[in-house]
């Protein structure tokens, strides 16, 4: 019992980094994914090609390889000293961006062709039609898979303990190793993840219902 209490300060510290990496990473990933997803339905072959290669490469490689590549590989190649948190945020952004690209593509492609035509017919430009007509409708349909991606990315941050980022799992394991107790720290780590994922699910369901016109 005392371990459950004693582990709390370091887990709270770890939670902070887990949360920051996830939220900042997913936010950047959403912007990347929005562009890449629209790129995947672009008629411009170059844009389509770049977006497709990006999605396939990221989807086809494990995120653990990606973080090691970014943190060690890129630092080595470019001779820079990337800090761990930045590297983690980049890894989540780039990784989630690829999956979000597919979510965006699916969302936009699910909108009836007549909506594009109606936008065209009143003289809106392609980008105006996309922004005012298609995007708001597509976004609503994208919320469930986006929520899913948020939870996946949140859990993926645990892999960054491999480069000793002080996130939730790393802090829990550090405590366990230093006290030689394992049950309570890892139980608490699991509960901490659930403490974010379950409220996140509830909030997302509320947003979804609210947008359901």
């Amino acid at each position: 019992m005392e371990h459950i209490i004693n582990v709390l300060p370091s887990l709270l510290q770890g939670l902070k980094y887990t949360f920051i990496i996830t939220v900042v990473g997913i936010s950047i990933g959403f912007v990347i994914g929005a562009f890449a997803g629209l790129g995947r339905i672009s008629k411009n072959k170059l844009i389509f090609g770049i977006s497709t290669v990006y999605v396939e490469v990221i989807r086809g490689t494990p995120i653990l390889v990606q973080i090691l590549f970014i943190y060690f590989g890129l630092s080595d190649l470019l001779d820079i000293n990337l800090d761990k948190i930045t590297a983690s945020i980049i890894a989540i952004a780039v990784n989630a961006g690829a999956y979000i690209a597919e979510i965006v593509r699916g969302g936009v492609e699910s909108i009836d062709k007549g909506q594009f035509e109606a936008g065209d017919s009143i003289g809106l430009t392609k980008s105006q039609t996309m922004w005012y007509i298609i995007w708001p409708q597509a976004l609503r349909r994208m919320i469930p898979p986006l929520g899913n991606q948020f939870i996946i990315s949140l859990k993926d941050t645990s892999l960054f303990s491999a480069i000793a980022v002080g996130e939730l799992l790393y802090e829990g394991r550090a405590y366990a190793n230093s006290t030689f107790t394992y049950f309570e720290p890892f139980l608490m780590v699991a509960l901490f993840y659930l403490a974010i994922t379950i409220p996140a699910s509830i909030i997302l369901r509320r947003i979804e219902r609210k947008l359901d016109v």
Partner: peptide, 8 residues
């Protein structure tokens, strides 16, 4: 249009 295509 036949199917109205109003913005829902």
């Amino acid at each position: 249009f036949q199917h109205f295509n109003l913005f829902p």
